[in-house]
Amino acid sequence: MKALLAQTGMELRLMSRRGENLLVTLVIPLVLLLFFGSTSVFAVGSQRPVDFLVPGVLALAIMSTGMVSLGIATAYERHYGVLKRLGGSPLTRSQLIAAKIASVLMVEALQALLLLGVAILAFGWQPAGGTEVALGIAALGTVAFAGLGLLMAGGLRAEATLAGANGLYLIFALIGGMFLPVDHLPPALSGISPYLPPTALADLLRTSLSGAGISGFSLVVLSVWTIGFVVVASRTFQWE
């Protein structure tokens, strides 16, 4: 337990020291929320922009912490031999993974506090219900994107993970149904988009927070990706 706490503390301190990490996990989602929240470009139907936007920004926050921040940090830990050196100590792999999960959850709590605080105070956003369901969805989404991040980190060179995570981040932000409604995309993309993990996550968060029933299709899509990422990551992960 002492080892787990110390390792979690270390992970959090290191995250806070990486400026680019704070940019991607906190600043970018916040700027996008403030920017798109103040426009009416993406108002869909009777919804206010902020009702569409908040679940999308939450999905982006989950993606940036799980895939970008965790993935890139872990890739460089592997590159610098940190994972190998930790492996030579009594810290077990499960303790290391638990510490990473704990630190990701704490960063997400901070993101939620910041983003929801701004949404509520600046835009008068209120969830229409389903917060417990949304919490479960967020947890599933976290596992999915953390799995994807670790899949890249454990199999690719650090530089390739850096490029891959940032590239996917941009693509998913554009076509993953977070800020741009899927039916506004060109036909070729709007056909693919619903099958992507970010689109499924944003859709599930949006429907649950609007108090509507969640889409079984999106739940299946996100679950299948989640299982796939975790299974492949755990089978292919190389520690050095």
Binding site: K2, L5, A6, Y80, V82
Partner: peptide, 30 residues
């Protein structure tokens, strides 16, 4: 691994970590 200490040929430490905190971290493992 609770009874041995080891030194790799190179690397093994977080680039952003400071000497004292990395030692304290490893101390908590044993």
């Amino acid at each position: 691994r609770q009874q041995i200490g080891l030194m790799l040929q190179e690397g093994g430490v977080y680039p952003q970590a400071r000497p004292r905190e990395i030692l304290k971290l490893f101390a908590s493992f044993y």
